[in-house]
C-alpha cells in the first residue's frame, strides 16, 4: 500500500470511473429487480392450494420457526399445496412480522403467533398488534413446568412457595422467555406474593435457564416442558408441577399446579394468522388447509416429538379467546409494574 507506483495516465482513470459508475447502476438495478421479484414471488398466485408462504416471526431455529417448518413438511409430503415456503421475519418479539403481514395484499400467507407476541406488544407498546391480523386457527399449546435443581431443599410446590413468601426478593426465579415470567407472576399472585417484590432473572432460552438453576443463580424456574423435562429425566432437575388444566397424557405422574393449590393454567399457545386483506372465503380455505395439514400422520409424529399438545380452536371462539388472553396478559404486566 505504501509504495508509490508510476502515476496512471488520465484516460484509464477516467475509464475506470465510468466503469465504476456503470457497475453501480447495474448493481442498483439488480438489487431492485431481485427484491421486486422476490416480493412478487412471495405473494404471487392467490389460490391457496397453489402457493402458500408460512411466516415465522422469529429467526431460524426457535419454537415458531420449528412449528412452521414442521407444518411445511406435513403439507409437502401430503401434497396439500403445490408450493409451500417458510420465511423468517424476526424482530421486536415477533411484532415486526405482524406489521408486515398486516400489509400483505395476498391471502395465501400464514403467520404463526401467540402468547409471546401479545406479551411483546403490551410490554414494548409496539405499533403493530395481534388484532391487526386475521386469526385462522389455534393449533396447539405448550405447557410450562416448575422445576428446581435436583439437590434443592424444596420437595413440593408448598415448600417452594413457603420459602418464597418468607423472602420474595431473595428467592430468584428464572425462565427462558417472557411467557415463563408471566407464569411465575401468576403463581406469585395466587400465592399472595406481590409480583413487584419478586426477583426474575431473564435467561435467553431454556438452555440458559437450566444453567442458571444448576449454578445456583436461581432457586426455581418456570420453563417449557420440552426444554426442561429431559433434564428432569437425567436427574439434574426436579419437577414440582405443570401449569395446565389436566395432567399431561404420558407424563401423568406430574401433578398440575391447581392440584397443589395454585390455580395457574396459563398456556403457551400457537395459532395461525392471515393478512387482514383475506376475504371470508379465503380464510375458510386456509382453515381447511390447516385442518388437513394437522390431520396427517406426519403432524401427529411432530406433535409427539416436540412434546406439544393439540388444542384446536377456530372461528368466533378463537377471536374471543385471543381477546381474553390479551386482557389477561395485560393484567399480569400491570401487576408486574411494567
Amino acid at each position: 500500500m505504501s509504495q508509490q507506483a508510476t502515476p496512471d495516465s488520465a484516460s484509464p482513470s477516467r475509464r475506470k470511473r465510468i466503469l465504476t459508475g456503470g457497475f453501480a447502476v447495474v448493481a442498483v438495478g439488480c438489487v431492485a429487480a431481485a427484491s421486486f421479484f422476490s416480493i412478487q414471488a412471495a405473494s404471487g398466485g392467490t389460490d391457496v392450494r397453489n402457493n402458500v408462504t408460512l411466516i415465522a416471526p422469529a429467526a431460524a431455529g426457535g419454537g415458531w420457526d420449528t412449528f412452521q417448518r414442521e407444518l411445511q413438511q406435513s403439507m409437502q409430503t401430503n401434497d396439500l399445496v403445490n408450493n409451500v415456503q417458510v420465511i423468517n421475519v424476526p424482530g421486536a418479539g415477533g411484532t415486526i412480522a405482524i406489521g408486515n403481514v398486516a400489509q400483505l395484499p395476498e391471502a395465501n400467507n400464514l403467520m404463526v403467533g401467540g402468547t409471546g407476541q401479545i406479551a411483546a406488544q403490551i410490554q414494548f407498546g409496539t405499533p403493530s398488534r395481534l388484532q391487526d391480523v386475521t386469526p385462522v386457527a389455534k393449533v396447539l399449546e405448550e405447557y410450562d413446568i416448575v422445576v428446581v435443581p435436583a439437590d434443592s431443599p424444596h420437595e413440593t410446590m408448598d415448600d417452594l412457595v413457603e420459602a418464597w413468601q418468607e423472602n420474595p426478593s431473595g428467592t430468584p426465579w428464572t425462565g427462558g422467555g417472557s411467557f415463563d415470567q408471566l407464569v411465575m407472576t401468576e403463581i406469585a399472585l395466587v400465592a399472595g406474593i406481590s409480583p413487584g417484590e419478586t426477583t426474575y432473572i431473564p435467561s435467553d432460552g431454556g438452555g440458559e435457564a437450566i444453567q442458571a438453576l444448576l449454578n445456583g443463580t436461581a432457586v426455581a424456574a418456570a420453563g417449557g416442558f420440552a426444554d426442561m423435562y429431559p433434564q428432569v429425566e437425567s436427574g439434574r432437575l426436579r419437577v414440582l408441577g405443570v401449569a395446565a388444566e389436566d395432567r399431561l397424557a404420558g407424563e401423568d405422574d406430574i401433578p398440575t399446579l391447581a392440584e397443589e393449590g395454585y390455580d395457574v393454567t396459563l398456556t403457551n399457545w400457537r395459532a395461525l394468522f392471515a393478512p387482514p386483506s383475506a376475504t371470508e372465503e379465503e380464510v375458510t380455505e386456509l382453515r381447511e388447509l390447516v385442518d388437513e395439514a394437522v390431520a396427517t400422520p406426519e403432524w401427529a409424529a411432530t406433535v409427539e416429538r416436540n412434546y406439544w399438545r393439540e388444542a384446536p380452536l377456530q372461528g368466533e371462539e378463537l377471536d374471543q379467546y385471543i381477546a381474553d388472553e390479551t386482557e389477561r396478559i395485560g393484567g399480569l404486566f400491570e401487576e408486574m409494574g411494567q
Binding site: 421486536a92 410490554q123 431473564p202 411494567q338
Partner: peptide
C-alpha cells in the same frame, strides 16, 4: 433491556428492539 423492559437508544423504532 431484558430485566426492566425499558427501551434503550431505540428511538422508538421497533426494528431496534432486539
Amino acid at each position: 433491556d431484558a430485566v426492566t423492559g425499558t427501551q434503550r437508544f431505540t428511538l422508538g423504532a421497533p426494528q431496534l428492539f432486539e
